[in-house]
């Protein structure tokens, strides 16, 4: 049976993972290779590296980071952040990424999705979107897509569900749906948004934003009909291990990939 995926997301700046992981007592918590190895050993099904660097020098360092990780950790790697062209995609894929994630660049230039999918295949192209609820309470649910969510969120006027359908038509192979309303709250994913998109597209949907406890991941997989869940802080701050979350989800009847425990 196809298992549901648990995907930790790591922010990388100038070759270092930011937001330290306090429970890694004997390791360098900022080293991407060691962290990737740690998450791999603890059962992560994939890893996402999100490049939050600003300069082109730092971007070259990111390519080296991907190379180092890909030589040591043999699970799927996705790289996002700052990918604006097919050449940017190629550099990351050649360095060892299996997929690239695009967000703002796809809104500004939807052709990028099609060009990337034609050149590398849809399975390489992950479309990430930041969506925020715009309906008034009591009105039918509606979400719009925003860009530049890190610094100054800008509305695009795009309806999230329509955008999801369009990017899949253009060739996106997976969708990461990040709820701006839920992100950072630790109060759970926006399962209504996830379910609305999952019902409309034939590609895997990955939930993002809002995880605070394992029950939230379960709800995203059940009510949200998500194929995978992405989470950052609940793992990074050591609140839960990937293993513990998988144990919980498996006990709830969710198909999980089980990895052998280190003895």
């Amino acid at each position: 049976m196809l298992t549901r995926r648990i995907i930790p997301c790591l922010d990388v700046k100038a070759g270092r993972v930011v937001k330290g992981i306090s429970f890694l007592n004997h390791r360098d918590a900022g080293d991407p290779v060691q962290l990737a190895a740690f998450y791999n050993e603890s059962g992560a099904d994939e890893l996402v590296f999100y490049d939050i660097t600003a300069s082109s020098d730092e971007r070259n360092i990111m390519v080296e980071v991907v190379e180092q990780v890909a030589r040591q950790v043999f699970i799927p790697l996705t790289v996002g952040g700052g990918i604006r062209s097919v050449d940017d995609m190629y550099r990351m894929l050649r360095a060892g990424a299996d997929k690239v994630s695009i967000n703002t660049a796809a809104v500004l230039n939807p052709q990028l999705i099609e060009d990337g999918a034609k050149r590398f295949g849809s399975q390489c192209i992950v479309l990430s979107m930041d969506a925020r609820r715009i309906n008034e309470p009591g009105q039918p649910s509606q979400w719009n897509v925003f860009t530049h969510t890190g610094r100054d969120p800008r509305p695009t006027g795009l309806d999230a569900i329509e955008w999801a359908k369009r990017v899949v038509d253009l060739g996106a192979g997976e969708l990461v749906i990040n709820s701006m309303d839920a992100d950072g709250t630790g109060a759970g994913y926006d399962n209504e948004l996830l379910a609305a998109i999952s019902a409309q597209v034939g590609v895997p949907v990955i939930a993002s934003g809002g995880a605070g406890k394992p029950e939230h991941l379960l709800a995203a997989l059940h009510e949200g009909q998500a194929d995978a869940v992405l989470a950052a802080s609940i793992f990074h701050f050591g609140t839960y291990t990937v293993e513990a979350v998988k144990d919980y989800l498996a006990a709830q009847g969710i198909p999980m990939r089980r990895t052998p425990r280190p003895v």
């Binding site: 049976m1 298992t3 399975q123 192979g173 034939g202 590609v203 895997p204």
Partner: peptide, 10 residues
């Protein structure tokens, strides 16, 4: 089915 099949399967 969701196609492609993407993920870990036994």
């Amino acid at each position: 089915l969701k196609v492609p099949q993407i993920g870990w399967n036994s």
